[in-house]
Amino acid sequence: MAVIDQSKPAKVGGATKWVLAANLISPLSVLIGLLIWEVGARLFIDPFFLPPVSAIFLGAVELHQQDLLLTHISASLVRILGGWILGSLVAIPIGLLVGSFLNAKRIIDPYIHFLRFIPAIALVTLFIVWFGVGELSKILLVMYATAFIVMVNTATGVVTIHQNKRLAARTFGASMWQIFWRVTIPAAMPSIYVGMRLALASSFLVIVAVEMLAAESGLGYLIWTSKLYFKIDWMFVGIFLLGFLGLLTDYSWKMFGKHVIGRFVRSAANY
């Protein structure tokens, strides 16, 4: 696969400096935000309600010393990524089918549009009854939360493919099957890619809800149980980590889009 890099190195010395300076804006913005928090929390707010950033960091260190930090992170991450990938693997073929064949759409569409409005959170207790309190129910819930977003995006991607792409293939004598593999799927890739990116955020949403209700580990569990020990700083560690892990997985997905499957999704991976 070709690697498409649209960011060219700046040639002029002044321009290079400006690019370097521009790259510093985001870290600087974050730093200033954290600083305002630290100072604000120390001076004006009861640290029990809003601990300063330093206290949250110390809380994280404390958790790490008790071997809890990585346990909770990996528990949540495995559920999120596992459910997200499995959910997408189920959803993409269905989306392609629904987008390509009118009769498939007629059969499957009512279920998609009914089920996708039932939030995964509404099914948490039911899934625990059905599939137990173990990992299965959690992964299935993340799959559920992921699948409909990916499905709808995939099908939309298929139906918006310009007919000239298929017609051109037909002038080359392509069969329906060849058109499906060599035109429909690659042309729908940007929509699949964006759908999976949106679904990733939903996976985070649902896994926290499940872990608060029925789990012995995970960031949702950490946030929920910290309340019992009045450990507000641990609660913030969990909240912080959710945002941070979200940022990290989203960025990884973006880099995957840019560098691994760049030729298919390069414009979609630009934001």
């Binding site: 310009h162 000239n164 017609l167 002038t171």
Partner: peptide, 19 residues
């Protein structure tokens, strides 16, 4: 359609495979 007939479409954006 058949291989005996080739086609050039008017639209600049839609006929080529951008990947």
């Amino acid at each position: 359609p058949g291989k005996d007939r080739g086609m050039v479409f008017q639209d600049l954006e839609s006929a080529l495979y951008e990947w």
